[in-house]
Amino acid sequence: MLRAFIQHLHFTKTERFGALGLAFIFCLVYMAPEIYHRYFLKARKTDFSAFQRFVAAHAADLGIEADSLQPAKQPPAVFPFDPNTASAEDFERLGLSEKTAQSILNYREKGGQFRKPEDFQKIYTLSIKDFERLEPYIRISAKQEKWKDQEYAYGPRPAQYAGGGYEKKYAPRGPVDINRSSVEDWVKLPMIGEKRARQIINFRESLGGFLTVEQVREVFNLPDSVYQMILPHLVLETKTVHKLNLNTATIEDLNHHPYISGKQAMLIVRYREQHGAFASVEDLKNIIAFKDKAWLEQIKPYVGIE
């Protein structure tokens, strides 16, 4: 193998001179452009004095002050940046106006966060053209990206909620199992404080357990806006229902259930006293006053005979 390689390298004397000559010419030809540039190139320089007189005459004609001129600015640089942490100078270097830079900072101070590049468009003073130009350079730190898949219904927090203990509460903590969670779990959700959490849990106890996530909406005094806000975090993983015993419950017990009114409770107990124990849940239908089939369906999962 090595021998073959050595054979390759064998050149006869004439071949050697030929190769040498050619190699020399080769080097010359490849160095020529640089030599030309250094020694043979004549630098060209235009004389602009005539031009300057021309411009001055024109300015005089129009009555313009020719001296309020500044040197030209460089076009804005583009570089990777994180809209959550970049400074005002960074934004101005990227070609944004002072006004836009300031509005971005204001947004951030109020608690606004850019979770994905598209969020940067939310700034009103940012033109579409600038957004399109800068979008490929937006780099949002990975920590925020983890929540990329979750859609948040709220935008920048109003100033009154910024700072203080609210910061902890508004950090999302993942899904809440509506049937099992304690007060602490509920409190972690946005806009839910101790009071509301207790209300929800009380409602749950009275119900005997949630069967669907939508039932959370029915909690007393829970505004629909808050419900919408916490909805993405709610999951239903345990479906245990504590049923009311139709045969042993008192009127108070029955009334306590959110779906059963006092009157209905009284009718049930009255019927039971008159006709004896319920044999099955279907017997409720026999109570003439209970004409509303929908209500019966609603109540069915929560009542039993045991």
Binding site: S68, Q70, P71, A72, K73, Q74, P75
Partner: peptide, 10 residues
């Protein structure tokens, strides 16, 4: 490169 601006001199 330089930006197109009205009141500049190059």
């Amino acid at each position: 490169a330089v930006l197109f601006q009205k009141d500049t001199v190059i």
